[in-house]
């Protein structure tokens, strides 16, 4: 398993030492703290009834930030519903992400500058999309790359195989980024597959496979960066398995105590938490600055408060919207039904 820094925040591998700067460590820390603050607020907002069911990702911050910071402006991101840490880091607008969790379709509309496909809910269906978007980049003669995010459970789906197989046949510039967080809702990885690792499945497709410590933001970042470089150089797809852990529930509607000991999970925090690990590393390497840490915490809180205000004062949903975007020109059945709803007794 690829590791750069260990639990104590010390270098395991010196290979990347020169590439890791204070500025970069601060950037990674900032983004991880930002999405964790968002994630905890998301859970709180759901409990207060201010948004709907929320899907938390606490524990996966290093995987999501380390990967998302590799993307360049024109690259493509195909996330799942647990990857808004990655989309926020790549450039999704925070109030829009909140809107999505508040049942608003506006939350799935990507910002104009970034190619972010709406989160795929049907498991693994986004892998073939990433392959196709990447094939289109090759077709157009560009060197942009697509990345597909997916969980451990997704590797049991047919679309996992079909998406990777087609990408491997056409050597499409795509990175398949798996976050193995140990559980698919309640089913642990041992019941999901008989393979020792997810990364080893790359062998079947004749493509590189990398198993990386998903709690080590540097390891994730460099593994993904190298995969992107291969893709940009025409060397085809890579399968990456980031071994991580979901600290919380599957969703706010899920009770993880039904299938695992949550106290055990909290005990693991000391050794697993990716943010603690980076903090230790920064302290060990003279990259930590208490004033800076306080400053970014305040900035993040303020950004989040603003986003919540924006989400809550967002214009009321217009029922016309559900009719107007099915086709470019609404068909007659849709036009008639739109009128029916307008005239319906309220």
């Amino acid at each position: 398993m690829m590791e750069i820094i260990d639990k104590a925040g010390k270098f395991v591998s010196k290979e990347y030492e020169k590439e890791i700067t204070k500025e970069q460590a601060q950037k990674f820390y900032y983004h991880m703290l930002r999405i964790r603050t968002f994630d905890r607020k998301g859970k709180a907002l759901q409990r207060q009834g201010r948004i709907g069911t929320y899907v938390p990702f606490e524990g996966q911050e290093a995987s999501q930030v380390g990967s998302a910071l590799v993307l360049e402006e024109k690259d493509w991101m195909f996330p799942t519903y647990r990857d808004h840490g990655a989309t926020l880091t790549f450039g999704a607008e925070m109030d829009r992400v909140l809107l999505y969790w508040n049942g608003r379709v506006e939350g799935s509309v990507p910002s104009k500058e970034k190619n972010i496909y709406p989160a795929s809910v049907p498991i693994a269906t986004q892998l073939p999309h990433a392959t196709g978007a990447a094939m289109a980049e090759t077709y157009k003669g560009t060197n942009n790359v697509a990345i597909a995010y997916f969980g451990d459970g997704a590797t049991s789906e047919g679309d996992f195989h079909e998406g990777i197989n087609i990408a491997s046949v056409f050597q499409a510039p795509v990175v398949f980024f798996n976050q193995n967080n140990g559980f698919a809702i309640s089913v642990p990885i041992e019941k999901q597959m008989n393979s020792e690792t997810i990364a080893q499945k790359s062998e079947a497709y004749g493509i590189p496979g990398v198993r990386v410590d998903g709690m080590d933001v540097f390891a994730v970042h460099f593994a993904v960066k190298e995969a992107f470089e291969r893709a940009r150089n025409g060397e085809g797809p890579t399968l990456i398995e980031a071994v991580t852990w979901r600290f919380g529930a599957h969703t706010t509607a899920d009770d993880p105590t039904k299938y695992r000991d949550q106290e055990e999970t909290e005990k693991k925090r000391e050794e697993l938490d990716p943010i603690l690990r980076l903090e230790r590393f920064m302290k060990n390497h003279d990259m930590w600055d208490e004033d800076w840490a306080e400053k970014i915490e305040k900035e993040i809180e303020a950004e989040l408060d603003d986003a919540i205000v924006e989400m809550e004062k967002f214009q009321k949903p217009d029922p016309a919207d559900m009719f107007d975007y099915v086709f470019e020109e609404p068909t007659w059945t849709i036009q008639e039904q739109k009128e029916i709803l307008k005239g319906a007794t309220k």
Binding site: T131, G132, A133
Partner: peptide, 9 residues
Amino acid sequence: GAAVGMALN
């Protein structure tokens, strides 16, 4: 599915 990705792009 790949055609979806192509058509998006």
